[in-house]
Design a protein around this nucleic acid. Sequence first.
DNA 1: GCCAACGTTGGC
DNA 2: GCCAACGTTGGC
Length: 158
Amino acid sequence: MSENNWLFKADPKDYSIDDLANEQHQTTSWDGIRNYMARNLLRDEIKKGDKILLYHSNANPKGLVGLGQVVRSAYPDDTALDQSSVYYDPKSSRDNPIWYMVDVKLVKIFPEVIELRELKETKGLEKMMLTQRGSRLSIQPVRKSEWKIIMQLVSKLK
DNA sequence: GCCAACGTTGGC
DNA sequence: GCCAACGTTGGC
């Protein structure tokens, strides 16, 4: 039962790693995922204890900003039931929840952003989902080999 | 701000 | 079930 590695994307204008750092217990429910492929990963694959790369998209600079860990596995995303939420989805119901979320705890904020540009130039990350053209999935699997390479990049940061 | 890539919707 | 139209994502 080995743990798996993931990458969670967020637009820091919506939710940044600093927002996560300011949460109580530096933990948040990762709500608002409204893509079926990402949902399937959240619901079926992502387990408590799994480690996560946190990524800022649509940002300057954009790239990896830190590490998190799953502290609660999937449970229904209640923002889908909240009519006042931007994540409200009338197709979802308490009896038949469509959307799920996990709880994520901050592990580390990198002293500097590991930029997408750098990742694209790094040997061994050529096939990483993040570096592929047109890759929009907001919850992505990260291969063990890719995780290792990125951890080496992290260890070189000041 | 542009636009390619992608997912979803809805007419048929 | 197909697929064009549309909306969104996100890099550049």
